[in-house]
Amino acid sequence: MSDTSESTGDAEADAADGADTSAVDAEEVRHVADLARVRLADDEVETFADQFGDILGYFEALDEVPETEREEELVNVMRPDDVKSGLTQEEALSNAEETEDGYFVGPKVS
């Protein structure tokens, strides 16, 4: 159940304790957390691996859903491109942790 080939080997060994049919291993949890830019503590990784196994196992039942035609009544909502006032620069920056000369200051790039 791994989406990258390099995470299969060690990962399956990690998940050996209490593994069931839909087990998720710690490597996979770390990989997804990395994609989502969420750092996790080691104990959190273990807890999530167990819980994700249960939850994804429950989602397996979606396999029984028949392919269904999706007739959405969706329409584009358009409006004239009129200029309207928005937030002032001061308002837009008011919640930023760090600003400089009217700009947001972000973390270093590398």
Binding site: D3, E28, V29, V32, A33, L35, A36, V38, L40, E44, F48, Q51, F52, I55, L56, F59
Partner: peptide
């Protein structure tokens, strides 16, 4: 965190 991670997982390739 659980929902962000599971959502990321459900949308990931494969």
């Amino acid at each position: 965190k659980r929902r962000i991670l599971l959502g990321t997982y459900a949308l990931s390739a494969g």
